[in-house]
């Protein structure tokens, strides 16, 4: 689980984002146990306080939960899980549209290109 971070965004936000991606793609399943704060800091090579902060943030957002002294787990709350997926999709689309707007491509053409590319990439991935 080694990733490189960019240096200008808060590290804890980048960690939370990674968790969201893993939840959205199913790498983390609902109810799955996650590493302790210290394990995470060690795995990601980040400050333990930052890991702590990321977990606090995720707990507040309801992405993870902790019962007593047990290890934290990914939430089983369907609404939250769906929201994560929606949030990521929305974010991705937003930034996509921003960059497309810059080169002023008509919407129909855009859809056509997108369809073609998306299908080809999926086929390639499936073929592997």
């Amino acid at each position: 689980m080694s990733v490189s971070f960019n240096k200008r965004d808060p590290v804890y936000i980048q960690v939370v984002r990674q968790f969201k991606e893993k939840i959205a793609t199913g790498t983390f399943e609902p109810g799955q146990e996650i590493p302790s704060r210290r394990e995470l800091a060690n795995q990601l090579k980040i400050n333990p306080n930052t890991a702590q902060r990321a977990y606090k943030e995720m707990e507040e957002e309801g992405l993870i939960y902790t019962e007593g002294n047990n290890p934290s787990r990914i939430t089983k709350d369907e609404h939250v899980l769906a929201a994560v997926r929606g949030e990521l999709l929305e974010e991705a689309v937003d930034s996509f549209i921003t960059s497309i707007r810059r080169i002023q491509v008509p919407f129909d053409e855009l859809v056509e290109v997108m369809k073609e590319k998306y299908q080809r990439q999926s086929e390639e991935e499936g073929g592997k």
Binding site: K7, R8, D9, P10, V11, Y12, N47, T50, R53
Partner: peptide, 14 residues
């Protein structure tokens, strides 16, 4: 360092 990233969007080197 985390606050300066969060509040000002700057890295330590910045």
């Amino acid at each position: 360092s985390e606050e300066i990233r969060e509040n000002e969007g700057k890295s330590v080197v910045d």
